[in-house]
């Protein structure tokens, strides 16, 4: 449960009952490691040191910081983690703001449906893992490219 290399989901809501319910459900139904916070500020601090953060679920209305600002900041701290907004306010304006400013992947309304939530979480984790893999492949390609360039330079020098 505490293996930090496991794909990790972060839940952030100032309502303890919401994070605990989501945590209980995801613990039962998914293989992921779940970390929960009632304070978005604490969540941001913790996110900086998370090694396998794949997805972040945030409430919209929180006293310390609204969900869109939080996810916007999270995008900076963990750019590859998928971002979900969970809200009791079906508000088109905020949804658009969240999509544009925080690069939101999905906008869920409270009360949520567990099965739908699980599906969105799984797809979100997969998306983040693919991004992660893509980044690793790009890095590997870049090093290979650099190495090849080095060889080419050496070859050119050797023959000229």
């Amino acid at each position: 449960m505490t293996d930090e290399t496991l794909d990790t989901i972060m839940l952030v809501d100032d309502e303890l009952m919401v994070v605990r319910s989501l945590e209980g459900f995801l613990t039962l139904e998914t293989p992921y490691r779940i970390v929960s916070y009632c304070s978005p500020i604490e969540a941001l601090e913790a996110a900086a040191t998370e090694a396998s953060l794949r997805l972040v679920v945030a409430d919209f209305m929180m006293p310390e910081m609204d969900g869109v600002s939080f996810l916007k900041e999270m995008r900076r701290v963990q750019p590859e983690a998928t971002r979900l907004l969970l809200t009791g306010y079906a508000d088109k304006e905020n949804a658009i703001r969240a999509i544009n400013e925080a690069g939101l992947y999905y906008y869920l309304e409270k009360p949520w449906d567990n099965e739908h939530f699980k599906l969105v979480v799984r797809n979100g984790v997969e998306r983040s893992s693919l991004f992660n893999e893509l980044s690793s492949r790009v890095s590997a390609l870049e090093s290979a490219h650099a190495e090849l360039s080095g060889f080419r330079e050496k070859l050119v020098k050797a023959f000229l």
Partner: peptide, 24 residues
């Protein structure tokens, strides 16, 4: 409506989670 929405959402989710747990 707003005040009841959060606990109601939690209860609905928990009811579903408990049923899944019992099935398992």
């Amino acid at each position: 409506a707003h005040e009841i929405n959060t606990p109601l959402g939690a209860l609905a989710s928990n009811q579903d989670t408990t049923r899944r747990a019992l099935d398992k």
